[in-house]
């Protein structure tokens, strides 16, 4: 049985453990053995994006050390995947040993939907969910990893699910990590623009590949008292 290591990310570990479990379910269902290296914590992105490069490097070294021998690393996040695959190299440009390890791991890091389609090569995971959903393109997945059609292809195979595009699917939800608390009014305003677009679709469910965006969208939906739910792609695909 092929074997995949999962990096569930700190936010899934602490806030959305169900998403991690759903990802495990889907991977096992399609015949992969799942390994969870228990020393894992965070990829370092919060520090990197806030300008704390030394701190980001400390955490990034820990990540590289934990996953140094993994063959496939599957991540339920476009943002954290991009941090590792695109920004570690910049962090370690003056540290040849860590840079070499970074380059070795870069091709082994897979965002969950990309892993399903390009490594496992499955589109239909046998999921079933009776909902009307709209898909939110998360920025780093879309613009740094080129993830656009993949999740939609996977969702199109979910029985009972009908997918409606929102006009502002590619517009940022306003999360942006520490941006969301450094500039709460701007961030909140962006979230409200997003949920206006969600509402126009008439969908009762927002699906995404990053729980950080979903945390923002869900928080804004709840504050506005709107009966629209959010689910990570893995949770949708785990439904049957």
């Amino acid at each position: 049985m092929p074997r995949a290591s999962i990096f569930v990310t700190c936010i899934v570990d602490q806030l959305y453990p169900k998403v991690g479990m759903a990802m495990v379910d889907v991977l096992e269902r399609i015949g992969w053995q799942v390994d969870f290296p228990e020393r894992q914590t965070c990829c370092g992105q919060p520090a990197f994006n806030t300008g704390y490069r030394d701190e980001a490097r400390t955490v990034a070294r820990h990540f590289l050390d934990v996953f140094r021998d993994a063959e496939y690393i599957v991540v339920p996040s476009g943002s954290c995947t991009s941090m590792i695959a695109h920004h570690y190299a910049e962090l370690f440009q003056n540290e040849p040993e860590w840079l070499a390890l970074t380059h070795r791991l870069e091709p082994r890091i897979w965002e969950f939907s990309k892993f399903l389609l390009e490594v496992a090569r499955v589109e239909d995971v046998g999921a079933r969910l009776e909902r009307v959903a709209t898909f939110h393109d998360s920025c780093h997945g879309l613009r740094e990893l080129g993830i656009k059609e993949g999740p939609r292809r996977l969702l199109a195979r979910v029985q009972g699910l009908s997918l409606r595009e929102m006009d502002a699917a590619e517009e940022c939800c306003g999360f942006g990590g520490t941006f969301s608390v450094k500039f709460p009014e701007i961030s909140g305003g962006m979230a409200r623009t997003k949920i206006d677009s969600i509402q126009r679709t008439g969908a009762d469910l927002v699906v995404g590949i990053d729980v950080s965006c979903l945390l923002q969208i869900q928080g804004a939906l709840s504050r506005a008292g709107l009966p629209v739910g959010t689910m990570h792609l893995a949770e949708v695909l785990a439904c049957r």
Binding site: C139, G174, F175, G177, F183, S187, M190
Partner: peptide, 10 residues
Amino acid sequence: LPFASSLCGA
């Protein structure tokens, strides 16, 4: 000022 961005990349 450089922090007033969600880094969405648009």
